[in-house]
Protein backbone atom coordinates (compact mmCIF):
# COMPACT_ATOMS: atom_id res chain seq x y z
CA UNK A 1 0.00 0.00 0.00
CA UNK A 2 1.50 3.31 -0.99
CA UNK A 3 1.23 6.31 1.24
CA UNK A 4 -0.06 8.90 -1.16
CA UNK A 5 -0.14 11.64 1.44
CA UNK A 6 3.60 12.09 1.22
CA UNK A 7 5.76 13.44 -1.58
CA UNK A 8 8.70 11.45 -2.88
CA UNK A 9 10.86 13.34 -0.37
CA UNK A 10 8.58 12.30 2.50
CA UNK A 11 6.99 15.72 2.94
CA UNK A 12 3.33 16.17 3.63
CA UNK A 13 1.29 16.63 0.48
CA UNK A 14 -2.15 15.62 1.72
CA UNK A 15 -3.19 14.97 5.29
CA UNK A 16 -5.73 12.17 5.12
CA UNK A 17 -4.97 9.81 7.98
CA UNK A 18 -2.42 9.32 10.73
CA UNK A 19 -1.91 5.71 9.65
CA UNK A 20 1.43 5.15 7.98
CA UNK A 21 3.05 8.40 9.13
CA UNK A 22 6.30 8.39 11.06
CA UNK A 23 7.07 9.83 14.45
CA UNK A 24 9.35 12.65 13.21
CA UNK A 25 6.56 14.00 11.02
CA UNK A 26 4.05 14.03 13.88
CA UNK A 27 6.65 15.74 16.06
CA UNK A 28 7.30 18.30 13.32
CA UNK A 29 3.58 19.12 13.17
CA UNK A 30 3.53 19.69 16.92
CA UNK A 31 6.75 21.74 16.91
CA UNK A 32 5.43 23.92 14.17
CA UNK A 33 2.09 24.34 15.94
CA UNK A 34 4.07 25.45 18.97
CA UNK A 35 5.63 28.23 16.88
CA UNK A 36 2.26 29.26 15.48
CA UNK A 37 0.44 29.28 18.79
CA UNK A 38 2.04 32.60 19.71
CA UNK A 39 0.50 34.34 16.73
CA UNK A 40 -3.02 34.11 18.08
CA UNK A 41 -2.16 36.29 21.05
CA UNK A 42 -0.37 38.95 19.05
CA UNK A 43 -1.85 42.32 18.18
CA UNK A 44 -1.79 41.43 14.47
CA UNK A 45 -2.87 37.80 14.30
CA UNK A 46 -1.57 37.11 10.82
CA UNK A 47 1.49 35.80 9.01
CA UNK A 48 1.88 36.02 5.23
CA UNK A 49 2.88 32.38 4.68
CA UNK A 50 -0.02 31.42 2.43
CA UNK A 51 -0.69 34.80 0.87
CA UNK A 52 -2.20 34.34 -2.57
CA UNK A 53 -3.27 30.75 -1.91
CA UNK A 54 -6.90 29.72 -2.21
CA UNK A 55 -8.32 27.23 0.25
CA UNK A 56 -11.79 25.76 -0.03
CA UNK A 57 -13.51 24.31 3.00
CA UNK A 58 -15.64 21.63 1.42
CA UNK A 59 -18.05 20.42 4.08
CA UNK A 60 -20.48 17.69 3.13
CA UNK A 61 -21.41 17.27 6.77
CA UNK A 62 -22.32 19.87 9.36
CA UNK A 63 -19.63 21.24 11.60
CA UNK A 64 -19.07 24.45 13.45
CA UNK A 65 -15.91 24.05 15.46
CA UNK A 66 -13.80 22.22 12.92
CA UNK A 67 -14.83 24.44 10.04
CA UNK A 68 -14.30 27.67 11.99
CA UNK A 69 -10.90 26.66 13.27
CA UNK A 70 -9.82 25.63 9.77
CA UNK A 71 -11.11 28.94 8.46
CA UNK A 72 -9.32 30.93 11.16
CA UNK A 73 -6.13 28.94 10.64
CA UNK A 74 -6.20 29.68 6.91
CA UNK A 75 -6.92 33.35 7.47
CA UNK A 76 -4.10 33.71 9.97
CA UNK A 77 -1.83 32.32 7.29
CA UNK A 78 -3.21 35.03 4.93
CA UNK A 79 -4.85 32.57 2.52
CA UNK A 80 -8.13 33.31 0.77
CA UNK A 81 -10.80 31.01 2.16
CA UNK A 82 -14.08 29.89 0.73
CA UNK A 83 -16.61 27.87 2.72
CA UNK A 84 -18.90 25.51 0.92
CA UNK A 85 -21.51 23.55 2.80
CA UNK A 86 -22.87 20.95 0.49
CA UNK A 87 -25.96 19.00 1.27
CA UNK A 88 -24.98 15.38 0.79
CA UNK A 89 -28.36 14.49 -0.61
CA UNK A 90 -27.63 16.71 -3.58
CA UNK A 91 -24.46 14.76 -4.32
CA UNK A 92 -25.46 11.26 -3.43
CA UNK A 93 -23.76 9.86 -6.51
CA UNK A 94 -20.01 9.60 -6.88
CA UNK A 95 -19.87 11.32 -10.25
CA UNK A 96 -21.46 14.45 -8.89
CA UNK A 97 -18.92 14.53 -6.06
CA UNK A 98 -16.20 14.44 -8.70
CA UNK A 99 -18.04 17.04 -10.76
CA UNK A 100 -18.18 19.36 -7.76
CA UNK A 101 -14.51 18.79 -7.20
CA UNK A 102 -13.40 19.42 -10.76
CA UNK A 103 -15.50 22.57 -10.95
CA UNK A 104 -13.84 23.97 -7.87
CA UNK A 105 -10.45 22.86 -9.11
CA UNK A 106 -10.92 24.78 -12.31
CA UNK A 107 -11.12 27.91 -10.16
CA UNK A 108 -7.44 27.34 -9.33
CA UNK A 109 -7.91 26.16 -5.79
CA UNK A 110 -4.74 25.16 -3.95
CA UNK A 111 -6.24 23.16 -1.13
CA UNK A 112 -9.43 21.38 -0.20
CA UNK A 113 -10.34 20.88 3.41
CA UNK A 114 -12.89 18.09 3.23
CA UNK A 115 -15.43 16.72 5.63
CA UNK A 116 -17.71 13.95 4.42
CA UNK A 117 -19.97 11.40 6.07
CA UNK A 118 -18.43 8.49 4.15
CA UNK A 119 -15.27 6.69 5.24
CA UNK A 120 -12.64 7.00 2.55
CA UNK A 121 -14.11 10.14 0.98
CA UNK A 122 -10.97 12.23 1.59
CA UNK A 123 -8.80 9.47 0.14
CA UNK A 124 -11.09 9.29 -2.89
CA UNK A 125 -10.90 13.04 -3.44
CA UNK A 126 -7.12 13.04 -3.03
CA UNK A 127 -6.88 10.35 -5.73
CA UNK A 128 -8.77 12.54 -8.17
CA UNK A 129 -7.44 16.08 -7.63
CA UNK A 130 -4.88 17.74 -9.87
CA UNK A 131 -1.25 17.24 -8.80
CA UNK A 132 -0.84 20.75 -7.37
CA UNK A 133 -3.87 20.50 -5.08
CA UNK A 134 -3.59 19.38 -1.45
CA UNK A 135 -6.38 17.67 0.45
CA UNK A 136 -6.79 17.90 4.20
CA UNK A 137 -9.17 15.44 5.80
CA UNK A 138 -11.43 17.25 8.27
CA UNK A 139 -13.24 14.02 9.13
CA UNK A 140 -14.45 11.19 6.87
CA UNK A 141 -17.22 8.93 8.11
CA UNK A 142 -15.97 6.60 10.83
CA UNK A 143 -12.46 6.53 9.41
CA UNK A 144 -10.17 9.39 10.36
CA UNK A 145 -9.93 12.90 11.73
CA UNK A 146 -6.19 13.45 11.71
CA UNK A 147 -6.04 17.16 12.61
CA UNK A 148 -8.22 16.50 15.66
CA UNK A 149 -5.86 13.72 16.71
CA UNK A 150 -2.85 16.00 16.25
CA UNK A 151 -4.37 18.80 18.30
CA UNK A 152 -5.06 16.23 20.98
CA UNK A 153 -1.45 15.03 20.85
CA UNK A 154 -0.32 18.65 21.02
CA UNK A 155 -2.49 19.21 24.08
CA UNK A 156 -1.18 16.05 25.76
CA UNK A 157 2.41 17.05 25.02
CA UNK A 158 1.90 20.51 26.50
CA UNK A 159 0.60 19.01 29.73
CA UNK A 160 2.55 15.79 30.04
CA UNK A 161 5.74 16.34 28.09
CA UNK A 162 6.80 12.93 26.86
CA UNK A 163 4.55 10.16 25.61
CA UNK A 164 6.24 6.83 26.47
CA UNK A 165 5.33 6.71 30.14
CA UNK A 166 1.72 7.71 29.71
CA UNK A 167 -1.43 5.70 30.17
CA UNK A 168 -4.26 7.02 28.03
CA UNK A 169 -7.88 5.92 28.28
CA UNK A 170 -10.49 6.59 25.61
CA UNK A 171 -14.09 6.21 26.76
CA UNK A 172 -17.16 5.64 24.65
CA UNK A 173 -18.13 4.89 21.08
CA UNK A 174 -14.83 3.71 19.62
CA UNK A 175 -16.57 1.72 16.88
CA UNK A 176 -18.06 4.71 15.11
CA UNK A 177 -15.43 7.30 16.06
CA UNK A 178 -13.03 8.68 13.47
CA UNK A 179 -11.47 10.72 16.27
CA UNK A 180 -10.67 7.60 18.31
CA UNK A 181 -9.17 5.79 15.30
CA UNK A 182 -6.83 8.68 14.54
CA UNK A 183 -5.97 9.19 18.22
CA UNK A 184 -5.12 5.52 18.67
CA UNK A 185 -2.84 5.59 15.62
CA UNK A 186 -1.13 8.81 16.73
CA UNK A 187 -0.66 7.57 20.30
CA UNK A 188 0.83 4.30 19.01
CA UNK A 189 3.23 6.10 16.66
CA UNK A 190 4.30 8.44 19.44
CA UNK A 191 5.02 5.42 21.62
CA UNK A 192 2.49 5.83 24.42
CA UNK A 193 2.95 3.18 27.10
CA UNK A 194 -0.61 1.94 27.28
CA UNK A 195 -3.79 2.73 25.37
CA UNK A 196 -7.06 1.67 26.94
CA UNK A 197 -10.51 1.73 25.49
CA UNK A 198 -13.55 1.68 27.75
CA UNK A 199 -17.09 1.07 26.62
CA UNK A 200 -19.85 -1.48 26.13
CA UNK A 201 -19.20 -4.25 23.60
CA UNK A 202 -21.73 -2.73 21.23
CA UNK A 203 -19.53 0.33 20.81
CA UNK A 204 -16.13 -1.36 20.57
CA UNK A 205 -14.68 -2.96 17.42
CA UNK A 206 -14.76 -6.75 17.68
CA UNK A 207 -10.99 -7.08 17.34
CA UNK A 208 -9.72 -4.37 19.71
CA UNK A 209 -7.14 -6.62 21.34
CA UNK A 210 -5.47 -7.40 18.04
CA UNK A 211 -4.88 -3.67 17.64
CA UNK A 212 -2.84 -3.69 20.85
CA UNK A 213 -5.54 -1.97 22.87
CA UNK A 214 -6.41 -2.82 26.44
CA UNK A 215 -10.15 -3.28 26.69
CA UNK A 216 -12.22 -2.41 29.74
CA UNK A 217 -15.95 -2.42 30.27
CA UNK A 218 -16.10 -0.30 33.42
CA UNK A 219 -14.61 3.05 34.39
CA UNK A 220 -13.40 2.00 37.82
CA UNK A 221 -10.80 -0.46 36.55
CA UNK A 222 -10.32 1.25 33.21
CA UNK A 223 -9.34 4.61 34.65
CA UNK A 224 -7.01 3.28 37.35
CA UNK A 225 -3.66 5.11 37.21
CA UNK A 226 -4.47 6.81 33.94
CA UNK A 227 -2.72 10.09 32.95
CA UNK A 228 -5.04 11.18 30.17
CA UNK A 229 -8.80 10.61 29.97
CA UNK A 230 -10.45 11.17 26.62
CA UNK A 231 -14.23 11.01 26.48
CA UNK A 232 -15.92 10.76 23.11
CA UNK A 233 -19.14 12.36 22.05
CA UNK A 234 -22.00 9.91 22.09
CA UNK A 235 -24.05 10.30 18.94
CA UNK A 236 -27.62 10.25 20.19
CA UNK A 237 -28.75 8.18 17.20
CA UNK A 238 -26.86 5.25 18.77
CA UNK A 239 -30.02 4.50 20.75
CA UNK A 240 -31.42 3.32 17.42
CA UNK A 241 -30.15 0.01 16.15
CA UNK A 242 -30.05 -1.37 19.69
CA UNK A 243 -26.51 -0.24 20.47
CA UNK A 244 -27.57 1.27 23.79
CA UNK A 245 -30.78 1.28 25.81
CA UNK A 246 -30.81 4.95 26.87
CA UNK A 247 -28.55 7.92 27.46
CA UNK A 248 -29.38 7.69 31.15
CA UNK A 249 -28.05 4.17 31.40
CA UNK A 250 -25.01 5.18 29.37
CA UNK A 251 -24.27 8.01 31.77
CA UNK A 252 -24.67 5.63 34.72
CA UNK A 253 -22.11 3.22 33.27
CA UNK A 254 -19.73 5.33 31.23
CA UNK A 255 -20.46 8.98 32.02
CA UNK A 256 -17.37 10.72 33.41
CA UNK A 257 -18.28 12.11 36.82
CA UNK A 258 -15.99 13.53 39.48
CA UNK A 259 -16.29 10.29 41.40
CA UNK A 260 -15.26 8.17 38.41
CA UNK A 261 -12.47 10.57 37.54
CA UNK A 262 -11.02 10.07 41.01
CA UNK A 263 -9.90 6.57 39.93
CA UNK A 264 -7.43 8.17 37.54
CA UNK A 265 -4.19 9.80 38.63
CA UNK A 266 -4.77 13.03 40.58
CA UNK A 267 -3.08 15.07 37.86
CA UNK A 268 -4.88 13.36 34.98
CA UNK A 269 -6.21 15.66 32.28
CA UNK A 270 -9.68 15.33 30.77
CA UNK A 271 -10.18 15.79 27.05
CA UNK A 272 -13.17 15.78 24.72
CA UNK A 273 -13.25 16.45 20.96
CA UNK A 274 -16.57 18.29 21.28
CA UNK A 275 -19.33 19.13 21.00
CA UNK A 276 -20.14 17.95 24.52
CA UNK A 277 -23.35 16.22 25.57
CA UNK A 278 -23.43 17.28 29.20
CA UNK A 279 -24.99 14.62 31.37
CA UNK A 280 -24.55 11.95 28.70
CA UNK A 281 -20.84 11.20 28.36
CA UNK A 282 -19.51 13.77 30.81
CA UNK A 283 -20.80 15.61 33.87
CA UNK A 284 -20.69 19.40 33.80
CA UNK A 285 -18.59 19.42 36.97
CA UNK A 286 -15.87 17.50 35.12
CA UNK A 287 -16.18 19.32 31.80
CA UNK A 288 -15.81 22.66 33.56
CA UNK A 289 -13.56 21.35 36.32
CA UNK A 290 -9.86 21.96 37.03
CA UNK A 291 -8.67 18.83 35.20
CA UNK A 292 -10.52 19.68 32.00
CA UNK A 293 -8.46 20.95 29.05
CA UNK A 294 -11.38 20.87 26.63
CA UNK A 295 -11.33 24.56 25.69
CA UNK A 296 -7.55 24.50 25.32
CA UNK A 297 -8.04 21.77 22.72
CA UNK A 298 -10.13 24.16 20.66
CA UNK A 299 -7.47 26.87 20.86
CA UNK A 300 -4.75 24.40 19.94
CA UNK A 301 -6.84 23.33 16.98
CA UNK A 302 -6.05 26.61 15.22
CA UNK A 303 -2.27 26.33 15.65
CA UNK A 304 -2.20 22.66 14.64
CA UNK A 305 -4.29 23.32 11.55
CA UNK A 306 -2.03 26.24 10.62
CA UNK A 307 0.91 23.88 10.93
CA UNK A 308 -0.64 21.19 8.73
CA UNK A 309 -1.86 23.64 6.10
CA UNK A 310 1.45 25.42 5.82
CA UNK A 311 3.36 22.16 5.62
CA UNK A 312 1.08 20.72 2.96
CA UNK A 313 1.36 23.84 0.85
CA UNK A 314 5.10 23.62 1.00
CA UNK A 315 5.77 26.81 2.85
CA UNK A 316 8.48 25.24 4.97
CA UNK A 317 11.30 27.44 3.80
CA UNK A 318 9.59 30.66 4.74
CA UNK A 319 8.79 29.59 8.26
CA UNK A 320 12.02 30.92 9.67
CA UNK A 321 11.02 34.44 8.73
CA UNK A 322 8.15 34.60 11.22
Amino acid sequence: MTNNQLTAKGQLRHFLTIEGLKKPLLTEIMDRAEQFSGISTRHVKKVPLLRGKTIVNLFFENSTRTRTTFELAAKRLSADVMNLNINTSATSKGESLLDTLHNLESMHTDMFVVRHNQSGAAEFIAQHVAPHVSVINAGDGCHAHPTQAMLDMFTIRRHKGHFPNLRVAIIGDILHSRVARSQIQALSILGVGEIRVIGPKTLLPSDCETLGLHVYHDLESGLKDVDVVITLRLQLERMQGALLPSSREYFDCFGLTEEKLSFAKPDAIVMHPGPINRGVEIASAVADGPQSVILEQVTHGIAVRMAVMSMALGAQSELNEI
Binding site: G94, H116, G141
Partner: peptide, 11 residues
Amino acid sequence: NDAKLGPFAET
Protein backbone atom coordinates in the same frame (compact mmCIF):
# COMPACT_ATOMS: atom_id res chain seq x y z
CA ASN B 1 -17.06 3.19 -14.61
CA ASP B 2 -19.17 5.66 -12.67
CA ALA B 3 -20.50 2.87 -10.49
CA LYS B 4 -17.05 2.48 -8.96
CA LEU B 5 -16.25 6.19 -8.62
CA GLY B 6 -17.03 7.47 -5.17
CA PRO B 7 -16.43 6.90 -1.48
CA PHE B 8 -16.26 3.11 -0.99
CA ALA B 9 -19.64 2.49 0.67
CA GLU B 10 -21.42 4.51 -2.02
CA THR B 11 -19.95 2.52 -4.89
